[in-house]
Design a protein around this nucleic acid. Structure first.
Lengths: 363, 363
DNA sequence: ATTGGTGCTGCAAAGGTTTGCAGGAGAAGT
DNA sequence: ACTTCTCCTGCAAACCTTTGCAGCACCAAT
């Protein structure tokens, strides 16, 4: 029922190859013929069959994007950015959700492998060796994790954690807790590593709590634990947990930031709307989405391969395995305040930034 | 490089059709042969090429899902439900985001048409005739809109709006404002229709404000307008706007629910965490996602078509155009309270429900 | 011995598109 | 008049899989 290239050819009195070229290599066909073909194609409602095209070119013009949890507000900006960047290059994005389940990740990659030209693997929880194995089935770009030999884009959460700890130490906090993220998270390990180092350098104690589910409930559930460790400041794995913690502390009757300071990571839009507004480390998620798409599609000029069967289902053969690190930025709002060891003098007073403009403060 | 059915056939000494059947019709091949084929396939790392399969069967085993805005927390539960329902039937979901842009919708449907077996069109903003036109390119199920002749699943927001208005009227409110949704939204029109009727029946005045963008900012921006119309209660198009309104009113120094009562629609998870907790109309979004997938795939037993070229790219030829309406439920929390016309006596006192359990109150 | 089944496998066409190669027409250069 | 070149178009193979049909071997029943 749907019109094919053959119908268009018949109706406009040319060979099918001419029709094909009209769409995929317009400069090779006589302008006159071309417009005639285009007209009949239009009138027949012809649309190229991507499956057939994929079969012979080996390019589907789709890319997969696998995230842990669509409902986590961290991801939508990244997804949107990736989508729009892909759309500019005439690619489509196939979003899938693993529900924070490590085993679902491999399944999903494998299932997608043959119907996409590459996969963006976001915050994977599976092992490095498994990721590497997946990368043999389909070109992969990893986001939020560094895997040697694979192209990846990460945020510099290490720097972010350092900034956060220094900010807290500068405010006079000496007992700090770190609310760890989910098991298997590279980001979580990275934060932990950097935070421990920064705390030692600043002469503060850092107690690591976790692993925890990276959700509001996870943060709320940790409130009691936070109270028991007797800290005066907390750095959370992400904003969602920080916000949950804010609520948990509130229902325990603990005031923020007067009694306990809280810092999140990510700067999701919600963190501007909590009360108190959340001090957090902004991560450039949209930029990450764009960068990942660019890396995946870097060698794709949509130039026709010499022979159709070269590089099947692969955008690029010998890919450069670049690793991009994006800068983070500490945004100081109202959830952090002076701690018990704040030296006298105005030097160390935090100037709370208001509005969406990021402000960076070093002690 | 990747192994094909032919490689497996050669390596295991059978014809390619036997390999094919091993995967797509196992009961037709000798168990002994089958296991041998499976073994060699495994060792070669063979994975069926979905593009080739799609080409001949006309089934891609993909479905598209088009939403207005992934970042809107209304959608993720729907997306997740659709995904998991689809996965059970061995389908994949292709999520795309229109950024609330009506013209992007058609583009997206058309672009998807050939690479999916059907599309779930969620809260479309385009015209009915355009939708109908799209449905000629690819099987469509419309969510959150009633289009005659097309299968659709909607929430009974009319009943929800009625319940909300009756709730407010029962609390003694006589001046009510309706914060309308975006232009082109069927849901918005439906709410408006039902709310006007219910308000008249209850002897209350209803002022309609809008259209507004269905976001927190949209709600916040309307706060001033709400104040000027002099109402004592507001029903918002969705929770996001209601929450924005809560903030807007707060920064105007107007207390909720003491001075103005606010009701949302959707019951997104965030609405349980605002202060005051939001009274809202719960819409069964997950059920809607599941139902839509079921409708799209209803006649798909994955039974092989007699001839491969039957029903190309279409799950079903003569589809029953069922229209499903899902029930909504008023959830009373803390953002609604007594209005100026509350009669004496305990009869009309609202008993605020707490926790996630929905409670339904008729005046 | 013939017939009729049953259970399995091979054959080959088909699906829609791309693309290297060859060929034709006309123009231009010698 | 011959070659050479440029532009365009047609030819046909190839991509990988599914599936109706036919054929084979074997067994049971007549």
């Amino acid at each position: 029922m749907p019109a094919t290239i053959r119908d268009v050819a018949r109706a406009s009195g040319v060979h099918i190859s001419t029709v094909s070229r009209t769409f995929s290599a317009p400069h090779l066909v006589n302008p006159e013929t071309r417009s005639r073909v285009l007209a009949t194609a239009e009138s027949l409602g012809y649309r190229p069959n991507r499956a057939a095209r994929a079969l012979i070119t080996g390019r589907t013009h789709n890319v997969g994007l696998i995230v842990a949890d669509i409902a986590n507000p961290f991801f939508p900006p990244l997804i949107k950015a990736a989508e729009s960047q892909a759309r500019q290059r005439d690619y489509h994005v196939f979003v899938a959700d693993t529900n924070e389940d490590a085993t679902a990740e491999e399944e999903l990659v494998l299932a997608m492998a043959k119907q996409v030209d590459g996969v963006l693997l976001c915050s994977p929880r599976m092992s490095n060796s498994l990721i590497e194995q997946c990368s043999r089935e389909v070109p992969l770009v990893v986001i939020n994790r560094l895997v040697t030999g694979l192209p990846s884009v990460v945020m510099d959460v290490g720097q972010g954690a350092r900034d956060a700890i220094e900010h807290l130490a500068g405010l006079g906090h000496r007992q700090i807790a770190l609310l760890g993220g989910p098991r298997g998270s590279w980001t979580s390990r990275e934060i932990r590593r950097a935070a421990l180092l920064a705390a030692r350098a600043a002469g503060a104690d850092l107690t690591v709590l976790g692993p925890n589910p990276p959700t509001e409930d996870g943060g709320a559930a940790a409130a009691d634990q936070v109270r028991r460790v007797g800290c005066t400041a907390v750095l959370a794995y992400n904003d969602l947990m920080a916000i949950g913690l804010l609520e948990g502390l509130d229902s325990l009757g603990i005031r923020v930031p007067e009694e306990i300071s809280v810092v999140g990571i990510d700067d999701i839009s919600l963190s501007r709307r909590t009360r108190p507004k959340l001090t957090t480390v902004a991560t450039p998620t949209a930029a990450a989405g764009r960068a990942a798409i660019d890396m995946l599609l870097q060698h794709d000029n949509t130039a026709p391969s010499r022979t159709g069967r070269a590089a099947p289902t692969a955008v690029d053969g010998r890919r450069t395995t670049a690793q991009v690190t994006l800068q983070t930025e500490l945004v100081i709002r109202d959830s952090t305040g002076p701690g018990p060891h704040l030296p006298a003098g105005p030097t160390y007073a935090a100037t709370a930034a208001s509005g969406p403009v990021a402000s960076y403060v070093k002690e």
